[in-house]
Design a protein around this nucleic acid. Structure first.
Lengths: 341, 341
DNA sequence: CGCCGCTGTGCAAGCGCTTACAGGTATACA
DNA sequence: TGTATACCTGTAAGCGCTTGCACAGCGGCG
């Protein structure tokens, strides 16, 4: 495809390249007639602006970088998908920086790739960044928003993990459970270390409010995977029926599914012998009948994009109320019920 | 970050911008002394080349587009991850085009985004492309490689699905099974319609070779998900013990997992009452003890990159033997055993 | 009626790099 | 010693766009 340049469009439309540029980008004044002619000429010739030339001249790339720690976890890909679609709608490309390839690749992302002036903005998903990395990003002088984990000095979108955990635990308490186990995240495991702690805080707070004493034996930590949840849940559920939890609140749906599988393998019935609740509303939660507190990662990605676009395109009328907390919602399915009395 | 230009580096190193460019890019001759000076100056100033200016001047973007149909399926994200890491190592960015956002977004990908001259090459993962889309891609005049599904007129990397299915089925036959069910893909469901058909062909061929007559009642189709596999497997396993399959070959691990769960829910023991084998070696296959034929999507992604780089950087010594078939391997776990006699 | 402000347009100067070309110096070889 | 053959370097012409500036035309307003 021999590329069509703006000059050819200009010639065909009988105007200057400046007018073509203005007509196509929508900035500056162009008469309706000229605009029509330009649009027609561009369409006829199959003209598509060269993003490099445009970026070089304008300083805008119409591209945003998304940095994430994993590509094989539901939450991350969901955020990515939400962000990607929103960006695409706005005419932006997304460049993916997956940081799971080991430390030397991670360094290159921050020291080299992000600095090539290829992006207008950066979305960082659930990354625990070093101060140096944060300073690198801020030094870019580009809009930056975090999703799913607090980044110091950076505007971040995250659900209220304490409240979410509180809600899930409260649901179990409301059903009449008093021996409620918790499958938490191992702090050292996840890339965002606040999340496991906060979810545990919500759990503990709900118990405290209900006057239920905290029993450390009912808490086990895992790595947020089905497998990890399975093994940890077996520990909890293997105890003597008298001390065994009648309900388990898992800090993620994947661990909740693990708990359901563990209960089955032990011959325990869910929810009659043990109720299970999770957090996320994972794709497969419905299949497992897992009661959960839904968060909406696709929407979180889209929201992050709104915030960025607001900064990148001020005229754009984004009705982004800055500080509306992110939504979450209890979704009750068949994995929770009153305890057997 | 007020951006450092090549001129500043040139000045600090006491050479011309041309020499800086040559020293940094490695094309053309530069004395060791000059190169050192340039490298030091660039490092001191924190200089990173502006990819836009570089691309505009050279026509090379150091960026490749990856187009995929889903972001929430293990196979796709694995290919993506493999490709991304390989590209990054070679200094390339990856721009993500996820085509799941509906037809109008899909059109824009092919009519607009990919034409902006932002990519040097395109990797298309398991996409069934319309002839028009293919022609659009070819018209780019850029290297193009497909992964995971045959694209007419395009070099494609895909395992031999017939052979893979044959191998899995043969394994079950070898254990002594004769009533072997198949969980196939619904042709209209998956984006690449050859795959379900080919896997079924491999299954049928293996049966035929063993002299086992094909029983249409032992075949059910689903959508490649755990859930779909679960429901389809229940149909197969709900039959009278005399006619029920003693083994199930699922065309994907996710459906295989569904089959295992279905068996359990029916009170059937895996592998004693029913063996299950899948294809993929999904992350969770090990947890489920699922016997499977592994394919290696990360490696497939990396291989696709090798092929592209070979074309983009001819001097690069890629030892890519063009037509080595993609590897696959039987991984036997605890979900398969001899049938109960 | 004169002035102002707004719209619409073109000119041309870059944006920050790469690279053809030309020239200059060293080495090899006759 | 002369000449061919490297190697090294700088000059400068773009790459294809955007946008500040200048200017022309036009209606509104005091």
């Amino acid at each position: 495809m021999q590329t069509v340049s703006i000059a050819e469009v200009a010639q065909r439309a009988g105007v200057s390249t400046a007018t073509v540029s203005r007509a196509l980008s929508g900035r500056g004044h162009v008469s309706a007639a000229a605009k029509d002619a330009v649009l027609r000429a561009a369409h006829d010739l199959g003209y598509v602006v060269s993003s490099n030339a445009s970026s070089l001249a304008s300083g805008r790339t119409r591209n945003v970088g998304v940095v994430l720690p994993f590509l094989d976890r539901w939450y991350f890909t969901s955020v990515l998908e939400g962000a990607q679609q929103a960006l695409m709608r706005a005419g932006y490309d997304v460049t993916l920086y997956n940081v799971s390839g080991g430390p030397e690749l991670r360094d290159r992302v921050f020291e080299e790739f992000l600095l090539r002036q290829r992006v207008d903005a950066v979305i960082a998903v659930s990354l625990e960044l070093t101060p140096h990395e944060v300073s690198r990003l801020l030094a870019l002088g580009k809009p930056l928003v975090g999703v799913g984990g607090p980044i110091p000095d950076v505007r971040t979108l995250a659900i209220d993990d304490v409240a979410v955990a509180h809600l899930a635990t409260e649901h179990l308490i409301g059903l009449g459970h008093t021996r409620i186990g918790h499958l938490g995240g191992r702090p050292e495991f996840d890339s965002d270390f606040h999340l496991p702690v906060q979810r545990r805080q919500g759990y503990e707070a709900a118990l405290a409010e209900a006057g239920i004493p905290l029993d450390p034996d009912l808490v086990a930590n895992a790595d947020f995977t089905v497998q990890g949840g399975y093994h940890a849940a077996k520990q909890l559920l293997g105890a003597h029926p008298r001390s065994r939890p009648t309900a388990i609140f898992a800090a993620s749906d994947e661990m909740g599914m693990g708990a359901i599988l563990a209960a089955r393998d032990l011959g325990l019935s869910v929810p009659h012998d043990v109720s299970v609740a999770g957090i996320d509303d994972h794709d497969q939660a419905d299949f497992f009948g897992l009661t959960t507190v839904a968060q909406f990662p696709r929407e979180q990605g889209a929201r992050a994009v709104d915030i960025l676009l607001e900064q990148l395109e001020p005229q754009h009328d984004h009705a982004v109320a800055a500080d509306i907390p992110l939504p979450f919602a209890l979704v009750v399915r068949s994995s929770t019920a009153r305890p057997r009395d």
